[in-house]
Amino acid sequence: MERIGFGGGCHWCTEGVFQSLKGVARVDQGFIQSEAPSDSWAEGVIVDFDPAIISLAILAEVHLRTHSAKGGYSPAGRYRSAIYVLDAAQRPEAAEAIDRFAQTTGEPARTLVLPLLGFEPSEDRYRNYYRTDPDRPFCRRYIDPKLDFIRQHFADVALADVGNQAP
């Protein structure tokens, strides 16, 4: 297993996105910290994955295509578009994925590659947000469209159903 972090928009959405992928063994949502100037705590997830089933490049592409990787919206600085690496070997692959994304969209991505220095998990009541109740209005409005996109564009790595599965 390998481990990597992702930050984008709401960690409820990000958690649901990565839980929908084959080869992802665990997703922990919470708050991630990196080095200055990105040392404020921002929403994110830590993903444990099997690189024999899903590559870091695919995880990064899914991430870039399911949040606002090109925009600058961040209420109170709690959203940071980033791929948080845990070792130096992950950095080039993450950077290449961001470059490929920028080339295919024709716009620069604001997503950063940062070292993961700290993680604080969300409160228990927020963990596995989509899996515990996919019928919540928030899930229907914000997470379901991302999961539909994954099923359409990443069908080879998409799980058939994410909702109401054991965490």
Rank of each mutant, 00 (worst) to 15 (best):
P145N: 05
V45Q: 06
D124E: 13
R125V: 07
I83H: 06
K70I: 14
S81F: 15
I53G: 11
A95E: 13
S68K: 10
D50T: 11
S74G: 12
P75M: 03
V45H: 08
D48T: 09
V85R: 15
A95Y: 13
F138T: 02
P108E: 13
G71S: 00
A82I: 01
S68R: 08
Y130P: 03
D99S: 07
V85W: 15
G44Y: 07
F119Q: 12
L86E: 08
V62D: 12
G106W: 02
D135R: 12
V113C: 01
K146Q: 04
L64A: 04
P92I: 09
D87K: 15
T66D: 02
K146L: 00
R78H: 04
Y84M: 12
C139A: 03
R125T: 14
L117G: 07
L64Q: 00
G72D: 08
D144V: 04
T104F: 02
Y73K: 01
A69T: 15
P134L: 13
A52I: 14
I58S: 10
A95H: 11
Q90A: 10
P108V: 05
A69M: 09
F138H: 03
P145Q: 06
R78N: 02
H63L: 07
V45G: 11
H67Y: 12
H63S: 10
P134A: 09
Y129S: 00
Y73H: 09
L64E: 11
I150H: 14
Y142A: 11
F119T: 08
